[in-house]
Amino acid sequence: MVDNRSSRRGFLQGTVALTALLAGGCSSSKEQPKTAFEDSVATFFQDNYQVMTKDEIKEVLARVERRVKREYGVDIKCENTPPVADVAFGYALNLSKCKGTRRCVEACVSENNCGRNHSLENIRVLAMPHGTMDLNKSDHYYDHEQVPNSNDWYLPIQCHQCDEPACVQACPVEATWKEKDGIVVIDYDWCIGCRYCSVACPYWARHFNWSKPNLQPDEINPKTHYLGNRPREAGVMEKCTFCIQKTRKGELPACQEACPTGARVFGNLLDPQSEIRYILENKNVFRLKEEQGTQPNFWYFYDV
């Protein structure tokens, strides 16, 4: 296996060097700035994130920053903060408190550099008529003059970061996987855009970039993570990553920060003192579509 890998890497690097040589004469020395073409060739031959060496990752992160600078004129910082030991993230949502303001959706879009041209939102808030749990009766596009509307209750849904993720199982090229802290991530540079993961997901949590995301330079959040909110290209999937760029540094996800009613509780499932553990141990919690067997890490509960 080791031999295979190293010979493959050698082959890929050789090809990169050769292509760069053909493209730019002998101009690919390290001091000179890389051209857009050299960068896209290098991205094309780039390995899967899970098997990259530290040096390769460093180069890849610099390449992401250069690309955003070139395309949007914005200086971003692209990091790859690793999972923190003894942390497994989980989320609990208080349905008694959610009033359907959709502030979480807005905050998510701007924190995560989601394209503004199509409704690419990684959180959906469903307006549900009272007296039913049937999702087929939900309204995804409610436009109530005032929330909460007296006829509805509200059900926000995003990626449940399952322990047995159907999406990871479906991906034909291992472009998506579950990290040690429980977050299911995508290597946007490895995804081939077949959308089989979104077919498999029971929570409709995966979204496709049907075209290049429409982002204005002043809308870009410059604090990014390679597996999280860095600006995406056309033709790849994306999803909620529990704001990996924030939460791995001890901050809260944008959706919880934005929630005006305090309905959202994010935390470390392995910390007995955490609020989420209190909720799981003291409230009647339930999980959506538990019968699908994907072991989600997202719970819902009521106050009473």
Binding site: V173, E174, I192, G193
Partner: peptide, 20 residues
């Protein structure tokens, strides 16, 4: 034709890519 990134088809090739 259905792929978003058809040039990345090599990710599915044995040895070169990472076929799941």
């Amino acid at each position: 034709a259905d792929l978003g990134q058809p040039l990345r088809f090599w990710h599915a090739l044995p040895l070169l890519g990472k076929l799941n």
